[in-house]
Simulated scan of single mutants.
Amino acid sequence: MKLEVVVLPVSDVDRARDFYVQRLGWRLDADFPIQDGYRIVQVTPPGSACSVIFGEGLTEQTAGTLHGLQLTVTDIVAAQEELTSRGVRVAGPFRDATGAFRHAGAAHRVPGLHPERSSYGTFAAFADPDGNEWFLQEITERAPGR
């Protein structure tokens, strides 16, 4: 099994499509207005095998309630600079006080890159217009078997 699609709750489909495609530069795979109240938009981050779907009639989740979505990058500083140049407000880079992963919220964030810049240790965060929260995690060398 592999993860293929994540359904994202949004309040304004066109605004979300513009954010993900025009602002972030993600590939627009589909925009199907099936019928009144049922529309499917699919976008894919560059280099990802997993897509994101949003639209109308796809989820009962409240818009903006999906937190913890994660994108991996090999250079978090470059990724943050690219997002910022596209007009996206990015928090970070930071690491978690425990060094294990990251806590929910910002209470345990330590500003700055991981001291050794080790894989899995540095994060940044941004949100879409509805408040769905995304994280970047820097991975330069994967753990064995991953």
Score class of each variant (00 low, 15 high):
125 A>N: 01
82 E>N: 05
12 D>W: 07
56 E>M: 00
131 G>T: 07
39 R>M: 00
123 F>W: 13
63 A>V: 05
40 I>G: 01
71 L>P: 09
25 G>T: 12
72 T>L: 07
25 G>W: 05
4 E>P: 00
61 Q>A: 12
73 V>Q: 04
99 G>A: 10
47 G>V: 06
29 D>F: 14
139 I>A: 11
90 V>N: 08
96 D>M: 01
60 E>V: 07
101 F>A: 09
52 V>F: 15
99 G>M: 05
55 G>F: 13
38 Y>T: 12
29 D>P: 11
41 V>D: 07
136 L>A: 03
22 Q>D: 15
127 A>Q: 14
120 Y>R: 03
83 L>A: 10
119 S>K: 04
58 L>P: 14
92 G>T: 00
111 P>W: 10
17 R>S: 02
68 G>V: 07
132 N>E: 09
100 A>V: 07
52 V>S: 03
137 Q>L: 08
106 A>S: 10
109 R>C: 01
79 A>T: 00
114 H>P: 09
64 G>F: 08
96 D>I: 01
103 H>W: 08
77 V>T: 08
136 L>H: 07
3 L>H: 10
17 R>T: 12
56 E>D: 11
18 D>G: 00
102 R>F: 10
18 D>K: 04
84 T>A: 13
38 Y>R: 13
54 F>D: 13
107 A>Y: 03
77 V>R: 06
126 F>Q: 04
56 E>V: 11
54 F>V: 13
52 V>L: 15
143 A>P: 00
107 A>T: 12
38 Y>A: 12
16 A>H: 09
106 A>C: 03
36 D>E: 13
101 F>H: 11
40 I>R: 14
90 V>R: 04
80 Q>P: 00
70 Q>P: 00
123 F>C: 00
113 L>N: 06
81 E>Q: 07
109 R>D: 04
21 V>L: 13
78 A>N: 08
20 Y>N: 07
67 H>V: 14
39 R>P: 12
106 A>M: 10
144 P>H: 14
11 S>G: 14
42 Q>S: 09
71 L>Q: 11
136 L>C: 01
1 M>N: 08
112 G>P: 04
39 R>C: 10
24 L>R: 12
53 I>F: 12
27 R>T: 15
102 R>I: 02
145 G>A: 14
138 E>N: 06
69 L>I: 04
93 P>H: 03
61 Q>V: 05
106 A>K: 10
45 P>C: 05
89 R>V: 15
86 R>N: 11
